[in-house]
C-alpha cells in the first residue's frame, strides 16, 4: 500500500509540469497567411542579438569605428554637391544644396543599406537556415532594423551641418521617427520579396545592386520633386521612397513645402507590396531549408 502511495505521488509530481509544457504540432503548412506573430515574439531576443551582431561586426577592426556611419554620408554629400550643384547647377528649391541633399541622402543611405542587407539576409545565413529553427522572418527583419543605428549616427552629423548653415530645427523634427518607420516598412516590404526570391534565383545577387542604384535615380535625392514634369508626378508618387525623402526634408528643413497628397499612392503601394511580400515569404519559407 505504502509503495503504491509513493508511486502515485511521484507520478503526479512528475506529471504536474506537463500541462505547462509547450505543445507544437508539426504538419505540412496550409493557409495563405499564417503570420505566427507569437513565434516572432518568443524569439524577440534573437532579433535583438542579431541586430546587435550586425552593428558590432560592421565596425569591428576598423580604425574609425562607428565614425564611418557619419563619414560616409558626409563625404558623399560633399562629392555630390560639387558634381551636381556646383558643376551641374541642379536647383534645390532655394535651400542650401548640401542641406537639401543631405536630408535626402539620410533616408536613402538607410534604404539602400537595409535593402542590400535585407535582400541577402537569407542566402547570407544559409548555414543557419539549414541547421537551426527560428521564424525566418527574423532575418530580413533584423537586417532592416540594424542600419537604423547608422541612420541615427548620420542624423547627428546632419545636426552639425544645420549648425554650420545656421539653420534652427523646428517642432517638425519630432515627426522624424514616423518617416524613419515608413522607410523601414518600405525596405522590409521589398526585403521580404528580394530575400525570398534570392533563395530560389541567385540572379538576384546580380540584379540587386543595379536595382538599388536605379531606385536612387527615380527618387528625389539629387533633385527636387519640382523638377519632375507635372504629367509624370502621379506615376512618380507611386515610388514610396519619394514620400520618405519628402517627409525627411519636411521634418528637417524649416520652410520646406511638401504636397502631402503625393503620400497616398506611396502608402497604397507599400501596403500591397508588404502584404504580398509577407504572403510570398511565408509560402516560400517552407522550402527555404530544402532549396538554399
Amino acid at each position: 500500500m505504502r509503495g503504491d502511495e509513493i508511486t502515485m505521488s511521484a507520478l503526479t509530481a512528475d506529471q504536474r509540469p506537463l500541462s505547462t509544457l509547450p505543445h507544437v504540432r508539426i504538419q505540412p503548412a496550409r493557409g495563405l497567411l499564417d503570420l505566427d506573430l507569437a513565434a516572432l515574439w518568443q524569439y524577440r531576443e534573437l532579433i535583438h542579438i542579431l541586430v546587435w551582431r550586425d552593428v558590432t561586426v560592421r565596425y569591428k577592426q576598423t580604425l574609425l569605428g562607428v565614425a564611418w556611419a557619419m563619414f560616409q554620408p558626409v563625404a558623399t554629400m560633399l562629392i555630390f554637391t560639387v558634381v551636381f550643384s556646383v558643376m551641374g547647377k541642379i536647383p534645390s528649391d532655394g535651400f542650401p544644396y548640401p542641406v537639401f541633399l543631405y536630408a535626402g541622402l539620410l533616408p536613402w543611405f538607410y534604404v539602400s543599406q537595409a535593402l542590400s542587407r535585407g535582400g541577402t539576409s537569407l542566402v547570407g545565413e544559409a548555414p543557419l537556415i539549414s541547421k537551426v529553427y527560428f521564424p525566418r522572418l527574423i532575418l530580413p527583419l533584423s537586417a532592416t532594423i540594424a542600419p537604423l543605428v547608422d541612420l541615427a549616427l548620420a542624423f547627428v552629423a546632419f545636426l552639425g551641418l544645420m549648425a554650420w548653415f545656421g539653420i534652427f530645427p523646428t517642432w517638425r523634427m519630432l515627426s522624424l521617427p514616423l518617416f524613419a518607420a515608413l522607410a523601414a516598412t518600405i525596405t522590409l516590404a521589398a526585403g521580404l520579396w528580394i530575400s525570398a526570391l534570392y533563395v530560389k534565383y541567385r540572379d538576384v545577387g546580380h540584379i540587386l545592386p543595379m536595382f538599388i542604384q536605379l531606385w536612387m535615380f527615380v527618387s528625389p535625392i539629387l533633385y527636387p520633386v519640382s523638377k519632375v514634369p507635372e504629367s509624370w508626378r502621379a506615376l512618380y508618387a507611386m515610388n514610396p521612397v519619394v514620400s520618405v525623402v519628402e517627409g525627411f526634408r519636411w521634418a528637417l528643413i524649416p520652410g520646406f513645402q511638401v504636397d502631402f497628397t503625393m503620400f497616398f499612392p506611396s502608402l497604397a503601394v507599400v501596403c500591397v507590396v508588404f502584404v504580398g511580400g509577407l504572403i510570398y515569404f511565408r509560402s516560400m519559407e517552407r522550402t527555404f531549408a530544402d532549396v538554399i
Binding site: 509544457l21 504540432r25 508539426i26 504538419q27 505540412p28 530544402d290
Partner: peptide, 17 residues
C-alpha cells in the same frame, strides 16, 4: 526540429526542443 516541413503526416512535440 522544424527546419523543414513534412510533405504529409504530423508530429506532436510536447516540450521545448
Amino acid at each position: 526540429s522544424r527546419i523543414t516541413q513534412p510533405t504529409t503526416g504530423t508530429a506532436d512535440i510536447y516540450g521545448r526542443v
